[in-house]
Amino acid sequence: MKKLNLFALTVSCALSLGFASCADDASPMAQDQSKNTNASTVTKNSTSKVADAPWVKQFEETFDVGSNLSQWTKEQRADYNSWYCDYYSSVPTTQWRDGRQCLEIKTTKLSTYKYQSGFITSNYQYKPENNTEYMLSANIKLIAMDGGTYKSFTETYGAWPAFWSVQGNAWPTKGEIDIMEGYSFAPNASRFTSNLFYGTSSGTNLIGNSAERNYPANFDINGNGGWHLYESFWKMKDNVVTVTIKVDNVTVATYTNGSANNLNLNNFGPHSIILNMNVGSKDSNFIDPNKINLFSTAMMWVDDVTVYKRPI
């Protein structure tokens, strides 16, 4: 999640994203399995990454309904990048959605220029040792609701969901890896990117947005029922560090120290995992607060989060 107040934001041209019907999501009753079905009889339809040897699982969160999210810290604070979003620890919950047990982070409009949302940080941290690779995966769906009607994320304006990893202390001296940042700009096309941040002193990002990479133009947020597999592969081979971002098993970006001036991936980590839904920005030229429209709510649903490790 970019610290926009610390550097100049370069707004790339919006991607041309295909729009698919949300007909499958038309009924909230079809989404919330707990309303009509005994939860114990519903099979968890997980698309979590299950890796064969030599991958060894290091961390897993299945967000089972009733979980107290003990593997995470639920933030209670204002967003660093927006005047308009406050995070409440009560917002991240576990729910039945699309027949899955998942994390739900939802926005609520509190007043004309203030929104409530959620932000969770894993207590687990990781960083590759030499000649090892880590694979971080999450299955995420972005969606909105207008009363009892489901709406596409692409119909909203001003939502800013993110899936990323970072060392928060003395940011960005231990780096930041943004696997997915989504920006909704209806009626224009929404935009999805990956990015890196790094600096040698606290509070100063040295690479601006030079590491930002747009998702492919054919990426359809409404495809596959809205669920997508987002992954970060972080490895060190003979002391050379590479970060690869994939979406639905397609490579979006590959980063090395040569990807941006002043980038030093060898100084990254250890990182925690973060999932959040921001609203608005401190830069009104990027997200106009007068245009924000999230209907009744915009939501991030997360099915599973896993981390695997292997020798290389």
Rank of each mutant, 00 (worst) to 15 (best):
G280Y: 07
E176Y: 04
R191H: 15
D52H: 08
G148D: 05
N293V: 09
V241D: 04
Q33N: 12
L263M: 13
V11E: 14
S165T: 14
A26G: 01
D304M: 04
T73D: 15
E104W: 04
T256K: 12
A20M: 12
T47R: 03
T73I: 06
D79W: 01
T43G: 07
T108C: 07
N224V: 05
I312R: 05
Y113W: 11
L294D: 05
T306Q: 08
N5W: 11
T73A: 03
S194H: 04
P270T: 12
G225H: 02
S232N: 10
V250P: 02
A186T: 04
E181R: 07
P172F: 03
T254A: 01
L229W: 07
S210T: 14
F119E: 13
S202I: 08
E231M: 04
I143Y: 03
Y157W: 08
S48R: 15
T132K: 03
F192V: 01
V42A: 14
A211W: 03
F7N: 12
T193G: 01
A39F: 03
G199T: 11
I140A: 06
S296F: 12
A170W: 11
F219K: 10
Y308L: 11
T73H: 03
K141S: 02
N249D: 13
S117I: 02
D24P: 13
N123M: 13
V305P: 02
A138P: 10
N131E: 07
W72T: 14
K49T: 15
D52F: 02
E61N: 14
N139C: 06
I221H: 04
S259M: 03
A26S: 09
I140D: 14
T62Y: 07
V250N: 11
N209W: 08
A189C: 09
E231N: 12
M277S: 09
E60N: 05
V42Y: 13
R97C: 03
F153N: 10
G99T: 08
S27R: 15
